[in-house]
């Protein structure tokens, strides 16, 4: 896969460029596998800026972002974290799944995400002014539910926010054709199935089928797997562990592909 191709869903490319030009930070929210990361990589290439990706997790501390003192024989020395590195050298610092990080961690972003664009490092006493090419991008999936996870409003309200969803049928079809190397009929069928399954979201399944999974299915089909098996293994099985839900989904796939399967 080359990240140079990206099908815009709406005006996100223009918005991103405008935000980059005005040195504004960006927040992207959207379900898993809808193209958030791909979009950032594409924009990084388009703007000619390096992308520093940090995948956030609940053990991520401020030191993991900013940097810390390490030790070698002569004593201690300071090691920049990915955020500090991007601030110094310029580039896009992309914090993936930012709500997974503890809330107190993301507070270090505050001074970077407003007009000041500085990063104070209290351990070294430095105050780093951000490189003109530095851009902060964070993303998260609003679908998870834990009461204590979620972005502080004070953090949220410093970003230009883009809301991603799965691309519309036409674009998704094109993406699947290109990435999965299948013909239009198959791609359209996959998109139809995806749209049907997405209706179950929130009620019967936790996360709906993503564009990423559809591409997997398309790839399996283009490798010569029969469409039913390809869909069951790439789309259906990963969506649920409940046998009765799986059974219905298999029935649906069967109904869609029986002519080729029999």
């Amino acid at each position: 896969m080359d990240s140079s191709s990206y099908f815009a869903q709406a005006n996100e490319v223009e918005l991103f460029e405008a935000a980059a030009a005005m040195k504004l930070p960006i927040l992207i929210k959207g379900p898993t596998g809808c193209g958030k990361t791909r979009f950032i990589e594409f924009m990084g290439q388009k703007l000619g800026r390096k992308v520093h990706t940090v995948v956030c997790h609940d053990d991520l501390s401020a030191a993991d972002l900013i940097g810390r003192h390490l030790i070698r024989e002569e004593g201690t020395y300071w090691q920049d974290g990915p955020l500090t590195k991007a601030v110094r050298e310029g580039g896009i610092c992309y914090l993936d799944e930012v709500i997974e990080a503890r809330k107190d961690t993301t507070v270090v972003l505050h001074s970077l995400a407003d007009y000041r664009r500085v990063l104070p490092i209290d351990r070294t006493g430095e105050l780093i002014e951000a490189h003109p090419d530095f851009m902060l991008v964070v993303s998260y999936n609003p679908g998870y539910q834990n009461v204590l996870k979620g972005m502080k409003p004070s953090t949220k309200q410093r970003f230009i926010a883009l809301s991603f969803d799965y691309p519309n049928a036409e674009i998704e079809c094109q993406i699947i054709m290109k990435e999965g190397d299948v013909n239009e009929t198959v791609a359209q069928k996959l998109v139809t199935i995806a749209h049907e399954i997405r209706r179950l979201k929130e009620s019967d399944i936790q996360e709906a089928v993503s564009t990423r999974l559809l591409i997997y299915a398309a790839k399996l089909i283009s490798q010569g797997f029969n469409p039913y098996d390809a869909c069951v293994h790439s789309i259906v099985e990963s969506l649920s562990d409940e046998e009765d839900v799986l059974e219905v989904l298999r029935t649906l796939i069967k109904l869609h592909f029986l002519d080729e399967n029999n």
């Binding site: 049907e196 209706r199 179950l200 029935t251």
Partner: peptide, 15 residues
């Protein structure tokens, strides 16, 4: 019942 309910939602029936 359960399977049919899910199927109904899959095909776009009102939830």
């Amino acid at each position: 019942r359960k399977a049919l309910n899910i199927f109904y939602h899959l095909l776009g029936g009102e939830k």
